[in-house]
């Protein structure tokens, strides 16, 4: 989706990183495996980002249209932090992974207090206001960071050749097809996303703060009656949601480059994931992220990625039309 303006060719998520040049050299099997690996990277980042969107909707019952910009800010801040901190790519990356989500989360919490709180979280007015926030963040980034796409050096990046099994003349044979490889960093992204999401789930189910958030989700008025500071919970939730998007941005930026328009496509994909998974449901969101991420990787092998996106977009619209009850629930109308 080209949220405001069109970036020349900044494919914001690794779904764009197809290995078309490799098709000529590889058999179908290894090629499919490569596509699935790329899909898994996309799915991981998407799951992280969409859980943020889903968390905000689940607890606060508002749709945050500026979510893609928090992802973009995460990536841009990762660039900023790594460029200004010395001490090697690994240290700089760790600093970025801590600082960027904190800063972006703080900014989002501030936006919640200054803007959304005053709108009483009215669903429609909140969407309009977050559209405004989207443009403010995006255009402020354009003014300060500029229109260029900039890379971040991954903390480590070993090429890992992958084996393939084939039924040859002498029975089963292992071999390493040319072009079938991934990098250690991509595997790290998948691992990191799994760990982070597991941590988020533990946080929501086991910690006191998570319990408070879920109590607020069930019934805001009741939570107030029990003395839960709902306003502070909302600001925290909005901050955590944005922080998750920023973290996804930090993770992706060594694979993609940071660009001020990268939030648009990411937002569209997160919407798709969250709607298919059922807004507000963390488990559903993750299943949908895997589904969308993997199928985007695989479908893009056979079809044009634009066509895949057109079909996914229409499918989501129709899901909302024909199965609204299971997706937005009663309260979201």
């Amino acid at each position: 989706m080209d949220m405001p303006g069109t970036a020349p060719c900044v494919c914001p998520l690794p779904g764009g990183a197809r290995a078309q040049d490799a098709t000529d050299f590889m058999d179908f099997g290894p090629y499919l495996m490569l596509a699935m690996l790329e899909g898994a990277v996309l799915a991981s980042v998407l799951a992280l980002m969409a859980s943020g969107l889903s968390l905000v909707f689940g607890v606060m019952r508002v749709v945050n249209v500026a979510h893609g910009e928090f992802y973009m800010l995460g990536a841009v801040m990762a660039w900023a932090v790594t460029s200004f901190i010395g001490g090697g790519p690994a240290l700089a990356f760790i600093a970025a992974a801590i600082l960027a989500p904190l800063l972006v989360g703080g900014l989002a919490a501030l936006a919640d207090i200054v803007i959304l709180k005053r709108l009483n979280y009215d669903p429609e007015r909140t969407i309009v206001a977050t559209i405004g926030l989207l443009y403010i963040l995006q255009q402020a980034t354009l003014m300060s960071y500029g229109a260029d796409a900039r890379p971040v050096v991954p903390p480590f990046n070993h090429r890992i050749a992958l084996p393939w099994i084939e039924w040859g003349e002498g029975g089963l044979a292992f071999y390493f097809p040319w072009g079938l490889s991934t990098t250690s960093y991509k595997l790290f992204v998948i691992g990191a996303a799994v760990v982070l999401i597991a941590a988020l789930r533990l946080f929501m189910t086991r910690s006191r703060a998570g319990l408070i958030m879920r109590a607020t989700q069930l019934d805001g008025d009741m939570a107030t009656a029990f003395g839960i500071p709902v306003e502070r919970v909302y600001a925290a939730v909005f901050g955590v949601g944005a922080g998750l998007a920023a973290l996804a941005g930090v993770l992706i930026v060594p694979i993609q480059q940071a660009h001020y328009l990268m939030g648009g496509d990411a937002l569209l994909l997160s919407f798709i994931v969250v709607i298919i998974g059922g807004l507000g449901s963390l488990a559903g969101t993750i299943v949908a992220a895997v589904l969308i991420g993997m199928s985007d990787g695989i479908i893009s092998v056979f079809f044009s990625p634009t066509l895949a996106k057109i079909l996914a977009t229409l499918a989501v619209a129709l899901v909302l039309v024909f199965r609204p009850q299971g997706l937005f629930g009663g309260k979201g109308r």
């Binding site: 969407i127 057109i310 977009t313 619209a317 039309v321 109308r333």
Partner: peptide, 24 residues
């Protein structure tokens, strides 16, 4: 199609249809 929904769903459905047309 879209008027089977209301409120937030209507906003997102119209957004999605419009995106699909723009990409088409």
């Amino acid at each position: 199609l879209a008027l089977r929904t209301a409120g937030v769903s209507f906003m997102i459905v119209t957004l999605m249809f419009s995106q699909a047309l723009a990409m088409t």
